[in-house]
Nucleic acid binder design. Structure first.
Length: 485
DNA sequence: TGAAATGTTGGGGCG
DNA sequence: ACGCCCCAACATTTC
């Protein structure tokens, strides 16, 4: 009987897991393993919130595997060394994994594949985490896509009709002689307990992911298109961290949603499901772009922005933004939601990112780094694409003149201030009329509400109109200069 | 998945 | 009744 190492990475689930499924289907003796090798991620070592999630997800995966008669072997990297040691210890002759697409992970996996082959170890990799892999679609000229709409059309034409794989059944036990590190040895949990907000907001693991999907399919998704833009409403699926760690696959989500839509009696259910699946499409697009343009984690995709004059002397501004102390309630509410829960509503991500890159004119990279460290769903492909999109230097990016006005956005999408009040309790007593721009409230109103701007809540750190005008001028001048050069 | 500036239209107040 | 002005509401252009 073949002993097979199933190398878990970004696929911490038992259902719709092609690598695991393959090993079990063949009747191999399966040894599930996870290797903690943060140094292999280069500059993008998982941030604090991601590590917190990973800890709990590994705990959950081990528990689930134990329910199936197996267990998860934990090892420390380098990945290649750890795998080779395990091969020696277990007599495994085969290694399987599901593909990752970050530039450094791809390189590592390629090297490991070659090394295994040289040692006569069979290996196989599978697609578990994307509807369409980056090399599966090309433009007519054979180039990678740089624009979302044609990319998505090509993906739809390709189709992904295959039904998700079922969860695996009973697995052979893993010999007690095989050592596994204690999960605690990875040091993933914070040294100081800043994670209370994460604990109360999230249930980690495959089971929780499936429950959240079920909940979304049962009711919320039919209102998705109408509710997703309102941060105080529970209109989004909140599946992003589960997706990032592979506790659930995009195929499972797309399949479950389309099934729910086609059996729903609600008019427009299919259109609603498609609107959601389109967002999965942006995730696919981000992976496509990162695969073909691997430098875009750190450099702008649009070369015209290589020497863009981002503000370099605005550390105080960055700090105010990070801590949610800009004086603009919708921005601060978002940044505090992020800090406390490891997540931020997408509409507010756009507002806060526009504020940082367009109004404060700080580099998108500064924002990307902060999100990377604080988001539980931090994902290299999505994060790089999203920030470059807002900054105007990415693939299919927002044009430079698209600048969000946080006050208008706030009035439009949080009219009653429910979201603001949830994250900025100090503004609770301000009437709706003033909640979006507290500094405009008459001093008597401020006193009445016990929120004096400058004392209980920051005065605005920048002038919206002045920074907007300045930013437009800088972008225009720069792009003109580059065009003439 | 923007916002501000500028242009156009049409109803109502008014002499 | 009529022309004129004002301005809200909407449309278009510009960044």
């Amino acid at each position: 009987m073949t002993t097979t190492l199933v190398w878990f990475r970004s696929d911490l689930r038992l259902a719709d897991n092609p690598a695991l499924h393959d090993a079990v289907r063949r009747g191999d003796k399966v040894i599930p393993v996870f290797i903690w090798a943060p140094e292999e991620a280069g500059a993008w070592v998982p941030g604090g919130a991601s590590r917190w999630w990973l800890h709990h997800s590994l705990f959950a995966l081990d528990a689930t595997l134990r329910g199936h008669g197996s267990r998860l072997i934990l090892r420390r990297g380098p990945s290649r060394v750890a795998l080779e040691e395990l091969i020696t210890e277990t007599g495994a002759t085969r290694v399987v994994w599901n593909r990752c697409y970050q530039p450094l992970a791809l390189e590592r996996d390629r090297e490991i594949g070659t090394a295994l082959q040289d040692q006569g170890i069979e290996w196989a990799s599978f697609n578990a985490n994307l509807l369409v892999e980056p090399w599966q679609v090309r433009t007519r000229t054979g180039a990678p896509y740089r624009v979302f709409t044609p990319f998505w059309r090509a993906c739809r034409e390709l189709g992904w009709e295959e039904r998700p794989l079922p969860t695996v059944g009973e697995c052979a036990p893993v010999s007690p002689n095989i050592d596994s590190l204690d999960l605690g040895a990875f040091g993933l949990l914070p040294k100081v307990a800043w994670d209370s907000g994460l604990r109360v907001n999230w249930q980690v693991g495959e089971q929780a992911a499936l429950e959240r999907l079920q909940e979304f399919c049962d009711d919320a998704f039919v209102d998705y298109a109408g509710a997703r833009d309102y941060p105080s409403r529970p209109g989004t699926s909140r599946l992003s961290p589960h997706l990032h760690f592979g506790e659930i696959s995009p195929r499972q989500i797309a399949w479950a949603l389309m099934h729910a839509a086609h059996t729903s009696r609600v008019a427009g259910a299919v259109a609603a499901a498609e609107a959601y699946v389109r967002e999965l499409g942006w995730r696919e697009f981000a992976h496509h772009v990162l695969f073909h343009y691997p430098h875009t984690t750190d450099a702008p995709m649009d070369p015209r922005f290589a020497d863009f004059p981002w503000r370099a002397d605005a550390e105080e501004m960055l700090c105010a933004w990070q801590r949610g102390r800009t004086g603009y309630p919708i921005v601060d509410a978002g940044m505090r939601e992020l800090w406390q829960t490891g997540w931020m509503h997408n509409r507010v991500r756009m507002i806060t990112a526009s504020f940082l890159t367009k109004n404060a004119r700080l580099s998108w990279h500064r924002g990307a780094s902060w999100f990377w460290d604080t988001l539980v769903d931090a994902d290299l492909a999505n994060n790089s694409l999203g920030w470059q999109w807002v900054a105007g230097c990415g693939a299919d990016a927002a044009p430079y003149f698209r600048i969000f006005n946080p006050i208008l956005q706030s009035k439009k999408f949080d009219a009653a201030g429910a979201y603001i009040r949830r994250w900025l309790p100090e503004l609770d007593a301000l009437p709706d009329r003033w909640i979006h721009a507290p500094w405009e409230a008459p001093t008597t109103v401020q006193a009445e509400a016990k929120v004096v701007v400058g004392r209980d809540y920051p005065a605005p750190v920048l002038d919206l109109k002045a920074t907007r005008d300045e930013s437009l001028a800088v972008y225009r001048t720069h792009l003109q200069a580059v065009a003439n050069a």
